[in-house]
Structure formats: C-alpha cells, structure tokens
Design a protein around this nucleic acid. Sequence first.
RNA 1: UGGGGAUUAGUGUAACGGUAGCACGAGUGACUCUGACUCACUUAGCCUAGGUUCGAAUCCUAGAUCCCCAACCA
Length: 649
Amino acid sequence: MSDPTNTPLVPPVRPLNFIEQIVKQDNAALKWGAWADPVDAGIPGVLDHGKEKAAIKGPARRIGKPRVHTRFPPEPNGWLHIGHAKSILLNAGLAAKYDGKFNLRFDDTNPTKEEMEYVEAIKRDVKWLGADYENPDWSGAGDGDGGGGGGGGIFWASDYFDHMYEFAKELILKGHAYVCELSGEEVSKRRGTPSIPATSPFRDRPAAESMKLFREMKLGKHADGSMTLRAKIDLASPNFNLRDPMMYRIMHAPHHNTGTKWCIYPMYDWAHGIEDSLEGVTHSICTLEFENHRPLYDWFINAINEGRSPEDHLNRPIWHSQQIEFAKLIPTYTILSKRNLLKLVQDRTVSGWDDPRMPTIAGVRRRGYTPVALRAFCDDLGATKTESLIDFGRLENAVRDHLNKVAPRYMAVLRPLKLIIDNYPQGQTELLDCVNNPEDPGAGSRKVPFSRELFIERDDFMESPPNPKKFFRLTPGQEVRFRWAYFLKCVDCDKDAAGNVTAVHCTYDPATKGGDCPPGPNGEPPRKVKGTIHWVSAAHAVKAEVRLFDRLFKAEEPGKSGGAIGNFMDDFNANSLEVIEAHLEPALDALKYASDCADGFTPGAFRTPRVQFERLGYFTLDPDSTGTKQVWNRTVTLKDAWAKEAAKI
RNA sequence: UGGGGAUUAGUGUAACGGUAGCACGAGUGACUCUGACUCACUUAGCCUAGGUUCGAAUCCUAGAUCCCCAACCA
C-alpha cells in the first residue's frame, strides 16, 4: 500500500524541445554510413581525427539512441556572452543526453578579424560552463545511464582549408563554380532587386579558365579584391544568398594557424557545411538569422556529392549534416552584440570584457554567477524558434536559487551605524555560535565575536518609521533579535548638530543569549520579536571594499526606446557601480580569492568563494583582492519584500 | 515591393484533431533566528476573421503584427 501523502516526488518531465524531436525522428537516417572519411577519399591534407571517427563507430554508441554529434563554432573575434552560453549548453546538453559528442570548433576563416587572445578566453568559458569538450569520458548533463559520449575535442576550420580547396576545384570542374573578376562595388551594383536578377559577365567562363585563375588566386598572383570564386546557382533567386554567392576571396593576410600558406580564404557558407561534414556533426545548430542560408548549406554539400557514389570507396559522398535554427537569447537591460560590447570595453565605459556588469561569460563569472545557475536558466527557457525578450530577473532568480543552497552565510555591514549596548560590560567579548548555512545542516557553525559596541545597517534603524506596525527593526522602544546573539531593545539615539543619527543606544537581555528567548519565570510564554537583524562587533570588524552593481542600461531594450532605433548609449545607466567600504565579521578575512579557471580546473567545481552576507545578498571575492584588502562583488541581492513594502509608503 | 520565419496568461514554454497545462512573476496567507528560504491559495491565455469537422491552439483560406535577408563578415 502506498501512502499518497508520502509518494516520492517524480522529477518533472521536461518536454522535448523541437530540436530534440528532430533528433528522435531522424534516428534511422543518422546511421554512420556511406560517407567518406577525407583520408579514405584520397583528399590531400590528411585530417587527424581518425580516432574521433573510431570512437563514434565503436561500441560506445548506444543501441536505440540516435547518433548525436553537435558543435559550438565561435569565430575567435570576441568574448563569449550569455547568449553563447545558451547555444553551448544546448549543444553540449543534447550530446550528453544522447551519449553523443560535442566539439568546440573555432571558425577561423577570416584572419583579418580574428585574434588568438580570444581563443584562450573562449576555451576557458566553454569548459567553465561544463561543456567539457576535451574529456572523452565526459557525460555532462546526461540522463544518468552513463557510458559513451564525451568531448569531441577542439577543432579548427583552418585545418580543413586543403579539403575545401579540393572540393572547390571539383565544383569548378562540374561547372558549379567560376572565377568572377567583379569588384566588390560592382557586385553590389549588380546585385539586383527581388524582381530584377543579378548579373555577372564572368558567369559563363569555361571551367578550364576558372580553374587556371583559381589556382593563380591560391598562388598569390592576384591582388586582394581583384577576383573571387563564386558558386553558380541562380542569379534570379528571391533568396539573395543563392545569387551566386562568393566561396573564396583573396586576402593576403597571415593566419594565426596556417601562417602565410594561404592568401585565399573560404567564406562562411562554403566552409561551414564542410566543417560539419568532416567532423561528422549530425545536427548543426545555429541561430535564426541563418534560416535563409540553409538552402545554400544544403546546395553546397549536394554539389560536392554530385557524381560521388556510395559504391566508390575512394569517392563516396561526404556526410550531410542537418542545419537547425533556434532563437537566440535576448535579455532585458543589456546588450549582446559583439560590436557594442567591444565599444563599451574600448571606451572604458567598463573595466574590461570581464567587468562584473558585463553580460559576458567572463563577466558573470566574476560577478559570482555559477554554471549551474546558467544551465538552470537556459533549461527554463528552452529552445524554440520564437524570438522572445527574456527578463534578466529570471537569470538572477536562477542564481539566487543555486547560491541559496550552497553559499555559506556570514554577517557584514555595508552602511554602518554605531550601536552601543548601555548595559553590556565594557571591554567584554563573547564568542557566539553562528550557523553557517541553515539550508545545509552539514555546513556546521562558527564563532563570531560580540561586544558592547556594534555596527548595524543604517537601514535597520529609524527614529520614527512612517508605518511603525510594519517596521520590525530598531526604533526607540522596540526589541529585536540580533542574529545568533541577544534580544536588544532600543532606548535612544545620538545625533549631530545637523540632526543626523550618529549612534543608537540599546539594552540587552542576558537571558536571550544565542538569540532565543526563554519562557518567563512564572511560565509566561517566551517574548517574541518580529525582526532579526545582522551586526558586526565594531572592535573586531574587518574592513573591505565592496562593489555593488546595478544594470548597465536603464531601458529594457537599450537603444530601442519608443519603437525607434536609437543609440544604445542613450540608455546607459551612469550609476551602475557603487564602491563602498564595508565592515565584515572577522571569519571572512580568512577567505582567499582563487580563480574558478585555474589550470586543470574541473568544470562545475568552483573555487572562488561565494557567500551570502545575511539579509544583503550573495557576494564573491574579486580578483582585485590583495593580501591586505579584500574586494567583494555583490552577485545579486536577496529578494526583499520589505523594500517593496517600504516603496509603497 | 520579393523571399524566409514567428505569434498560446504579465513573461517564458507545453499540448502535434479529443479536458488549454507547467514554470517564473504578481497578489493573499501560513511558517520562520535572514522581511530570505519553504508551503498553501489566487490571478490570468490560444493574433484576427472565415471555413472543414461530432470536435480545431492544432487542418484549410484570407488578413494583421513582429523578426531576418540585397558584406569579398560569421
């Protein structure tokens, strides 16, 4: 007999998102079959990922599950932001769930825009999020039955330049590509309109001539911009992407990976499907703006495969990955465009890409957000094709949710007000037991010094509150609990000449030590207090810098006020950073900054201290901390029902 | 103007011809040594108009609104 009141909680069944539905539908189609390994196909420039292929083909693949191989393909031209986190978590999560693989691939096809500086930052961020691309045993957020799967590793688009070049020559030979000598300006002029086709006088150039010129392009015999290789598709297509798109352009620019070997570089559309193909990627997940590119993506793979045969071992068709588009993340009160984020950095509006106010992964990490919270946030949003504006508060909620469970509690006073306990012995100090985390019984307790003079939060005292019945804190005549200490009753306050409160006077009840009130001598029920406030002993307090943050922009959609597109800086919040000197309980002084991302770090095991200052929010140590002075960042405040109430008055 | 997408409570997201559900938010209350957490209750929705059907969020037709596309960027 099962007791209905005691039925174990069944974990919520998260509905399959549309991508997962596609994954399941295509199970049968995704057999590792008749596609050519580039090595087998006799293509020059041997690709060194034979073991990758073996791992997928081998017994690690699970029966009855679709083969899933995803990738995250950033161009190393900027730092990753929380929008990328959505993509990374989606791709890696999908691979993990189906015991598939996840590749981190740098889409480095344009050397003029890319820098190695960004590569290391991207690797760090992706791994920190828990998408452990280099660990073959990684099972990520799988469904718990383990086995198989793993990190595919790090890949580079530039590793495939030889293959792309060979494939391009095949297309020329098949009459699907030609060398065009129109200048960029001319191409633009001849682009046509929805009803007027584009034109190119070079379209019918004989294949042999195009081949000769293409080789010359590669050999550096032609100047930048003088000619391009174009796919011959449809100059009248209503989809402009199909109006003979560029495949190669000439750029005499050194590449961080291939050096000066190449002076022609493939365009995104030509390169991307090949990259996916050579890696055996099954589901090429990208954002909505690439929907118009999908026909081209498919066209290129089909063009390469034309004339190839599954029976011809050396000339089998290459793998055709499936492009799937989903809506990118658009959070309120911030911006995600790389260009504009770069502007904030360059203009010194923020301290850097990892400024704790930035929506970059490095920024939110420094702010104290956790990968668990980011993942919960993204899971909560799901993946759809609906473009929606996401309330940034949802991410903050996810952060609170996680930190509430794991962050040890401490006491700190941000805006101090001196408090004197008139009836407490001069010079006496007691060490009081304070619980470290009420959410986690295993977290134990610590000793905190208590003495005659304390600091309390200025907000916790009001001489004459506007609505006394709802004010549970210190006010003359009212008794409140000092967390883990005593009941204190406010008697009076001191003021300076201007009438500002300079100190609060209280008396304490020694019988309430520990913060509990015993029953009265004649069996009266214990006194109750409505409020509990935090404190630090003035003589023992440790000073530290605390940085409080507000959102970077005042408008939900910066630069979009009133439907008109304006300058996003018009909505900049000039007061997004406040630096104060706070008083901390001494135990906090023992905490030391350590990077989550130090060498060899394990995703998910964060090392930077993350704590709760009771009643004030979650805080984390900033790397600016020195041996003598700590710097604390406020990650997020606690929810504050009183603030709402107070705002009403 | 041409093409490609999207539209379900305030927000996000399910339901795939058969009872419109979930989460967050918001509101009320309970509990509480954090005005936190937790718990209970409440709140509110299928873009519009037609059609097919015993039955439509779902299929059809027409319309509305929003997003993307005419880089040798990705």
